[in-house]
Amino acid sequence: MQVHRPYTLHDALALMAATPTPTPIAGGTDLLVSWHHKPKEKLALLDLSQLGGELAAMRLTADTLELGALTTYWDVIASPEVSRAFPLLAEAARQVGAMQIQTRGTWAGNIGNGSPAADGVPVLMAYDATVVLQSTRGRREVQLDGYYTGYKKTVRLPDELIVAIQIPRRTRKAEWFEKVGARAAQTITKVGVAVVNDEKGWRVVANSVAPYVCRCRNLESALQKGQKFKSPEEIRDILKNDIAPINDMRSTAAYRETVLSRVLFYRLADKA
């Protein structure tokens, strides 16, 4: 196992271009899980924790929130301004694991890890976030919606680092988030959903119901057309083309599909 501990982004990007390609580590809340069961012979870690500066910063301007790659869930929870401007971020942050995880886990890490159950990603995607990737070759911005291409597969190239997440500030008519897990807190999501209706329209983002966190585009367009639903089953029929839930040891496909449509039904009846 190798460990690189750069002090500057410049050095970090240079190291990302090395072979073997290093795995970036920030809070470690995904990577260190069951650590001693993981083979490490070929592992090279790039520790981002000393970069600070730009990567640690959270900037709220008139039209954008920028989360540096080292921003933790706790940073958002502890910032009244950010929590007010983007309430779902704080709400989702409070439901990632428990306090001990929220103080370490980063939003960028949640995106980078690519878990279909990621709790931070649905709200970011519902807020129409952009991922800022950087390498020695330059910097580019990618819509978070479009970042994933398959189970734990993303458009990030091996030498690129997530350096920031940008979220546009818009006027929102509706926004809510619901996480369904096996217990009240400290739980992996069985099904979760974030919904935002802003000047650009509806975005419905679900997790744990597909190989990656995804938008439910058929449902969005139904909502866009102003469709009203008479039963959860109506929503479920539309969702069938949006999601592909599976059976695993945490839940069943039927449960995920049914619960997602029920949660949406009652929430939409309430707030839409």
Partner: peptide, 13 residues
Amino acid sequence: GVLVNSCLVPAFQ
């Protein structure tokens, strides 16, 4: 000064 799970912190950090 911040509460963390020490099983998820690599020693080098």
